[in-house]
Write a protein that binds this DNA or RNA. Structure first.
Length: 921
RNA sequence: GCCCGGGUGGCGAAACUGGUAGACGCAAGGGACUUAAAAUCCCUCGGCCUUGUGCCGUGCCGGUUCGAGUCCGGCCCCGGGCACCA
């Protein structure tokens, strides 16, 4: 920009600014204990091929926070890396007949260039890819050290198994209970896997949530529920004809007398014992293993059970209880067995209905308890009140107890017909425990079983240990050796890393390191005899659990070095809400592992967290006929058309009435707004948007269109609106410079020199400065920042002042606006800042503007005037007007007088600076 | 099924601590400028009617309050997660 008129050309503006930042190494962060640090971290991308809008949104939010903190004078670190191991590389390798490594590295090159074109203030000197040995060697070393500490163990666990392809499937690869490639019904299969003892930290991970005021409540609540601390009783049922009892855990020992059956996992030893003795039963039990392992599938599939022909003994009543192997009980979780209380657990209730098992009510509401007590007075204390109430109702004095009998009858009907009574209540039908409340019955029943040596009170967690074994190739090799003599032996640190070969032929049927008989051959580090390497690789959550720490210490010989404690914990972490539980829990867990290894000094990895919403877009499709399977007919299928190739049609009120293809003009159907995805072909390519409008416009739109936490609907007309705003700003600055010369003169303005319109503009400027600073720093409300700056530009455009003071005010306003816009549109700000007469670069810690309190002060305020809470007008009063004065003015207002006519005024409520409400009746 | 969110004009949204619902932007309609187009500028824009400082209106039903988009109870719908997608 110069004093002669030029159009805003984002291409050259952005290229210049990016070249300047690169040349001056503007964003390379250097540890400096004399300065306050700010570590701003965005979740690292998986290099899937090309940047998508979700990345753009995530990294723009992080960049805005980073650049704002930098303007506050902080020493900001904003790094980037690549979460480079994972399943998609294997799928792409099969599709493209290439090695996963090559595909991954090519994607990284492409996506890095795309990120750079967005102008993010990233310290690229700290970049890494997690698939490189110099990254994963640290992970392997950590693992063998954790093994020595007893934090790692190996046991059997269930996986999805495709019986046709003979492979383990990820949950994502199981669709409607079938393998995604073979279509075969998936089965559960047990295989040996490695686990990290995250449950050893369950209490701490739970308690630590209270020390995170900067995390969203939704995330903390989800994590609390996921960890799921509960207090209960673990106890044993003796089994007739078996030496081994069945152990169960329950949070509801008060319902013990309502147990009418037991459910065990199909893999439970007792089920296996029964199966071994009866081939037909073995087949039926094996059939229960059908279906995937995911909780969602398990909980929504039909509850099925097989009676195994064995009976457990009720520990109090001695009653024989049938034992079922059931598809909803998993061997991995808890004891692999649960007690069945159909009266008070909904799943057990449904199971009992399906298998005609008795439903016994042993807990009732207070109302029913009272009704039973009333009936008891009439039938005598020696009788079972419920039996009497129901069985001998006719014999009871109907006048006195009819209502009570009805209450009990309705309760019983509801449990019999509508479902279990799952609330806590009072115990009935339970002999010596009758009349106790939840806690009383818990203590009495737990106490009795403990005294008999049959059970113990236990704190139980829903959280399970972290299974880190994956039967895949493209991951970090697990550094263990299996020796026939010595068992499982960790690879000595001196022999690390265990390298993953990258130059492999990959068919997808089996991992190359499993297929290659040579790769696994090694010698036992302990006895020197022949041994096999572990051929499983780590869960890729392992890499993403500690990458944030590695950024602080590039090149360190260990995971991190002393630099980590300068930067950590992360001051602001930004990523998608879909990571609320798994990633963010592993992240918090791993930080504690680092702490307990003496590598970091803090307890939590990040003090503030922002979870951004998804990016969504309209979908369009046309229906086509494709040949149907089988007898030669056709079926309708949908062909999805990208929004970039669609023109929507509207009626004269702006409502969408239809859509047609820009390619062939064909009419299209509108499929609704959904998450951007390949399957719906509604992804909008960020690169195309940057090429067309410039990165600043794309950044501006993605920050304006919705609050960071909400879904963001991509809408190209909206992008054009953002482009218009920047062009208007550019023109306004040019016009100001055309009058004011080169803009170097002092722009300081005192309110006294300005006319009323100038004072009003200056007030709005400083109110905007105050609001925008608050929105950036405290509220993280970026859309309202942009709206406020648009309002200010509208006001500036309308301002007609023409004297020297007015021109100075224009420059003051424009300079402040450039600074306020800088975090969001940094290229644009870089150029306009210099044009406005500032020789220094904006990026060099220009302080964020500070509001002038004198400009904001008001002499009068406008109050809303209400009668009985309904708006009846407004009232202009002096800012320091007393309550009495305001009341008097309000009651004499013509509109108020009219609306209270015929009523008497009861009171007048005055909320200073806001409203006056006259209450009349 | 379970856990966590969300629902405000034709659309994205704003209303921050219970205090003037719809700022800002998009779309649409009308106008100006222009040979024309683009660009730009101006006006209108929740619904209803009796056009009034009128009535109704924040998913639905009920409650608390002088006052509810905001708080409470119940329901409906949509989205995220559910441990091997990342």
């Amino acid at each position: 920009m110069s004093s002669e008129s030029t159009a805003y050309d984002p291409g050259s503006v952005e290229a210049d600014a990016q070249a300047f930042w690169e040349r001056t190494r503007a964003f390379e962060a250097v540890e400096d204990p004399s300065r306050e640090k700010f570590y701003c971290l965005s979740m690292l991308p998986y290099p899937s091929g090309a940047l998508h809008m979700g990345h753009v949104r995530n990294y723009t939010i992080g960049d805005v926070i980073s650049r704002y903190q930098r303007m506050l004078g902080k020493n900001v670190l904003q790094p980037m890396a690549w979460d480079a191991f994972g399943l998609p590389a294997e799928n792409a390798a099969i599709r493209n007949n290439t090695a996963p490594a090559r595909w991954t590295y090519a994607n990284i090159e492409h996506m890095r260039a795309q990120l750079k074109s967005m102008g993010y203030a990233i310290d690229w000197s700290r970049e890494f890819a997690t698939c490189r040995p110099d990254y994963y060697v640290h992970e392997q070393r950590m693992f063998v050290r954790l093994f020595e500490k007893g934090m790692v163990y190996r046991r059997n666990a269930v996986v999805n198994f495709d019986p046709v392809d003979q492979t383990v499937l990820a949950n994502e690869q199981v669709i409607d209970g079938r393998g995604w490639r073979s279509g075969a019904l998936v089965e559960k299969r047990e295989i040996a896997q490695w686990f990290l003892r995250i449950t050893a930290y369950a209490d701490e991970l739970l308690a630590g949530l209270d020390s995170l005021p900067g995390w969203p409540d939704a995330v903390k609540t989800m994590q609390r529920n996921w960890i799921g601390r509960s207090e209960g009783l673990e106890f044993a049922f003796d089994v007739e004809g078996s030496a081994e009892p069945v152990r169960v855990f329950t949070t509801r020992p008060d319902t013990l007398m309502g147990v009418t059956f037991l459910s065990i996992a199909p893999e439970h030893p007792l089920a296996q014992q029964a199966a071994a003795a009866d081939p037909e039963l073995a087949v039926r039990i094996a059939a229960l293993k059908q279906g995937g392992v995911s909780e969602a599938e398990r909980e929504t599939q039909e509850k099925r059970g097989v009676e195994i022909g064995m009976f457990a003994t009720h520990p109090v009543s001695g009653e024989a209880l049938p034992i079922f192997a059931a598809n909803f009980v998993l061997m991995n979780y808890g004891t692999g067995a649960v007690m069945g209380v159909p009266g008070h657990d909904q799943r057990d209730w449904e199971f009992a209905q399906a298998y005609a098992l008795p439903i016994r009510m042993v807990i009732v509401s207070a109302e029913v308890r009272d009704a039973l007590a009333e009936i008891r007075q009439h039938v005598g204390a020696h009788d079972d009140p419920m039996q009497s109430a129901l069985g001998e109702a006719g014999a009871i004095d109907v006048v006195d107890t009819g209502a009570a009998v009805q209450v009990v009858q309705e309760f019983e009907d509801s449990v019999a017909n509508d479902g279990a009574f799952t609330e806590q209540g009072w115990v009935v039908n339970s002999g010596e425990f009758d009349g106790l409340d939840y806690q009383g019955a818990f203590d009495a029943i737990a106490g009795r079983l403990e005294k008999e040596g049959r059970g113990t009170r236990q704190v139980n967690f829903r959280l399970r240990d972290w299974g880190v074994s994956r039967q895949r190739y493209w991951g970090c090799p697990i550094p263990m050796v299996h020796c026939a003599v010595c068992g499982d032996v960790p690879v000595p640190e001196s022999q690390l890393p265990v390298l993953l070969p990258e130059d492999v032929a990959f068919s997808g049927v089996q991992s190359p390191i499993k297929a290659d008989p040579e790769w696994r051959k090694t010698t036992c580090p302990r006895c020197g005899g022949p041994a096999d390497r572990e051929t499983d690789t780590f869960d890729t959550f392992m890499e993403s659990s500690w990458y944030y720490a590695r950024y602080t210490s590039p090149g360190a010989a260990e995971m991190v070095d002393a630099r980590a404690n300068y930067w950590l914990p992360v001051d602001h972490y930004i990523g998608g809400i879909e990571h609320a539980i798994l990633h963010l829990l592993y992240f918090r867990f791993y930080h504690r592992l680092l702490r307990d290894a003496g590598m970091v000094a803090s307890d939590e990895p990040a003090t503030n967290l922002l979870c951004q919403g998804m990016v969504i877009a309209e979908t369009f499709f046309r229906e086509v006929e494709i040949p149907g399977s089988g007898s030669g007919g056709t079926v309708m299928d949908k062909v999805w058309v990208n929004p970039a190739d669609v023109e929507v049609e509207r009626d004269e009120r702006g409502r969408v009435t239809g859509a047609k293809s820009l390619i062939d003009g064909a009419a299209l159907r509108i499929g609704g707004i959904e998450k951007m995805s390949k399957s719906r072909n509604n992804g909008v390519d960020p690169q195309a948007m940057v090429d067309k409008y410039g990165a600043d416009t794309v950044r501006l739109f993605s920050m304006f269109a919705a609050p960071a936490e909400y879904s963001l609907e991509w809408n190209e007309a909206g992008v054009e609106g953002m482009s218009r705003f920047l062009r208007r700003f550019w023109r306004e600055a040019e016009a100001a410079l055309a009058v004011a010369g080169d803009g170097t003169q002092d722009a300081a303005v005192s309110g006294a020199q300005l006319d009323a319109a100038g004072q009003e503009l200056r007030r709005q400027l400083h109110e905007t400065i105050a609001k925008v600073g608050d929105d950036y720093g405290r509220r993280l409300s970026f859309n309202t920042i942009i709206a406020a700056l648009m309002e200010l530009l509208n006001a500036l455009t309308r301002y007609r002042g023409a004297d020297a003071a007015a021109h100075a005010l224009r420059l003051e306003t424009l300079r402040a606006m450039v600074l306020m816009l800088n975090p969001i549109t940094p290229h644009f700000a870089h150029r306009t800042w210099q044009a406005l007469g500032n020789p220094e670069s904006l990026v060099d810690a220009q302080p964020f503007p500070v509001a002038d309190p004198a400009a904001i002060a008001r002499s009068s305020v406008t109050l809303a005037l209400q009668v009985n809470g309904k708006l009846r007008g407004t009232l202009e009063v002096a800012a320091d007007a007393s309550r009495e004065v305001i009341e008097t003015l309000a009651l004499s207002d013509a509109s108020v007088v009219r609306h209270v006519a015929g009523l008497s005024v009861r009171k007048v409520i005055v909320v200073p600076g806001k409203i006056v409400n006259v209450v009349a009746s």
